[in-house]
Design a protein around this nucleic acid. Sequence first.
DNA 1: GCCGTTTTCGGCCCGACTGTTTTCAGTCG
Length: 566
Amino acid sequence: MKNQELAEIFYKIADILELQNVEWKPQAYRKAARSLESLSEPIEEIYHKDGLKGLDDLPGIGKSIAEKIEEYIKTGKIREYEKLKKYAPKGFEDLMNISGLGPKKIRKLYKKLNIKNVKDLQSAIKGKKLEKLFGFGEKTEEKLSEGIELFKKRKSRFLLGDIYLIAQSLVSQIKNIKYVERTEVAGSLRRMQETIGDIDILVITKKPKEVVDKIVKLDEVKEIIAKGPTKASVLLKNNTQCDIRVIPESSYGSALMYFTGNKDHNISLRKLAIKKGYKLSEYGLFKDSEVIASKTENDIYKKLNFPYIEPELRNNDGELTEKLPKLISYNDIKGDLHVHTNYSDGFNTIKDMVLAAKKLNYEYVAITDHSKTRAIAHGLDDNILLKQINEIKKIQSQVKGIKILTGMEIDIKANGDVDLSDSMLKKIDIPIVSIHSSFNMNKSEMTSRIIKALSHENVKIFGHPTARLINQRNPINIDFPRLFKFCADNNKFLEINSQPSRLDLNDIHIREALKYKVKFVINTDSHSIDSLNYMKYGIAQARRGWCTKNSVINTLSLKEFLNKIK
DNA sequence: GCCGTTTTCGGCCCGACTGTTTTCAGTCG
């Protein structure tokens, strides 16, 4: 899959062109790069299927960039880029990532002081060479020193699950500050994207200065990057950047909308506004200089002839052109069907997990420990599984108000056999099959292997379908159209796995699957009572993939659910 | 370089903060 490689090349081309003072092209290349990043299908497949025209049809990609993509697929190189690279000395792109440095300053530094990388910059600062440059003062020098430190420390993006709770805690502390009337997270966090670059927080108050002063003194704050009366940027102790915007009540809706993004969604909305003779900014929707909508997001969407668009959908990915579904909501889930215990590699007992699930108001929960082949996770053999089934019966007699289903996460062997005998399969309620070994298979073999396992009469759920891990460990090669069709035709269900580090089916796959009328089950794959709370991340993913309540079977009541799965 | 419900040319989102060149350019989100 060359999407990311190409996106990175285009970002670099944009940087170099910007350094050369070329107008407009940088934006075009960046847009093409973002477009590539948002694709789930490998770009080379699109090319092999539909050729240059298929590439040209993608948003932000025209004839010239399409040809460059073609060249890269065919030769592994883009001549234009190789040529441009000669202009840009090695390591220079790091300079673009230093806060306070943009193309103009970098150009000047290069021309006047021959600064080609972060190291050059650092020694120039040490040698007090910058001060002598026109436009560079003492403060700039200081800022750049800090920028270099920040650059060295900064990790690129964080997992939603790693940031979510920190942000919640920040918001609740800000709520307690005097004069704060309202506060809310915005940005990629509000959109519940799988990864988060920084935390955006909106605050409504009549006393901006006092409030900003208090916020930058919160315990989590390590460093103040910038601070004014209406906005501030701080670095938190975990090295996440947090941007705070203070706004008046009257523009709450337009500000929330603007800061929720994403970038392309905002740009599209603003362009649509212009077409209608309006101007849209974080202060409101304007006709000439008069505000015609600003108090709520809904007001603005309405004026622009849209229904309310849920934050998770604001990706400029069809939400402004297609009919929107009524999304599954965060409290629609009635049961978690993928839960591990200390029988295999979980940390808690069956009873602990069941009680924790009951606290979440679930109607049912399935205990699904690993099967015997998965020895490393202490997989259960037949005898232990029988023992577990008996223990579940006992616990069920003690715990009322939640149905405990028996189950197992069963390995799919390389040949497609499942790691549990037919007789045992019939004894458990929820057999989930999933892949933990022999990843290195071609698409057709892998898909046949999965379909063979799912073909068992009792097996209904395919667990963590693609293991599309953030770090790309063990991605599984699947022919999705074939799998989707099989599942839809045979009443089999795909799991949306809620683990933040294991975003299995990406959003586009979910949307594709829905076209085939595939149904999902959203599970946490919990290994501890705490991770039962991961459910929201899975639901967010389902929402981003445009799932309705109807397309997720564990939104059904116990009785309906059992009917469906039997 | 891309794009089109003002379509093959001529536009390309909007505003705050910062530092410095004291009226605005550069950077950022």
